[in-house]
Simulated assay, not measured.
Amino acid sequence: MDSVFTIEQLRPIKDGMTISRDAKLGTKTSVTYFSLAKETSISQECYDMTSVYIGASGTADFLIGEHPKKQPLTGGDLLIVPAGTLCGVETASGSIYTEIIMKKENLMNSMIKSGEVMKLKDLISYEEGSISNLDVVGNDSMKFVLMAFDEGTGLTPHRAPGNAIIFALEGSATIGYEGTDYTISAGENFRFDKNGLHSVTANGRFKMALLLVLE
């Protein structure tokens, strides 16, 4: 998809329905877009592997554990649910989010608290004249990382060894992809394919998350 988009555009809410759509990033890591209409829910279930949730818009209450604790997920939020943990979802007003199911053992940053919602942009800081990186969670088939670009910084054109999605978290940047420039702002997304030539140039300060599926 050679354009800036939002998850809501790909999977808009439909009255009375819960809908899922495969992001088609790969087979070793399951990435799915979900949209839930107001007053809908998904019953508690558990996976045998770690699941990751990234809020796009609206608010969803995630019900974690046998004695459910509500964790509200909104745009730009992160929730990681450990393997074998009951998890359900309900929403009063409607919600759109991304689900990532990690099919292999993973390494998670020690600053991340499983079962608790965290604001992605608050997990990483700007460093003067620099680009900072923070690995959130990953294994040999996927990486989910945060990046903070100080004003005047950027990544020169390069190619990545897998399909990827950028989640813009704060500020704006110019994404160069296969010879065309695109402006991306907080709340928007951009996808590039394996080996696609791309660059990132911050327009002021800019924070983003990157989901890279290595296959």
Rank of each mutant, 00 (worst) to 15 (best):
L36T: 02
K28W: 01
G55T: 08
T6L: 05
P157S: 10
I101Y: 12
E39Y: 02
K70V: 10
E151S: 15
F192D: 01
L123W: 04
K121T: 08
T174P: 11
G76C: 02
G115P: 00
V136T: 01
F5T: 01
I131T: 15
E45M: 14
S51M: 07
S141W: 01
T180Y: 05
S125L: 11
T59H: 04
D140V: 06
I184M: 15
D193E: 14
N203F: 00
I131Q: 13
L25A: 10
G65A: 09
S41T: 08
L10K: 11
V200L: 15
S43K: 15
F144N: 04
E39L: 06
A186T: 03
P12N: 07
G94C: 12
K14L: 13
F34H: 06
Q71V: 09
D150Q: 12
P12E: 06
K119P: 00
G129D: 03
V213H: 05
F5K: 06
L36E: 03
M17T: 08
I42N: 07
H198R: 15
S110T: 07
G84F: 08
G55M: 08
S130E: 15
G115N: 07
L63A: 07
L78R: 04
I7S: 04
P161A: 15
F192Y: 11
K14Q: 15
V137S: 08
F144A: 11
M108L: 10
A209V: 01
V136H: 00
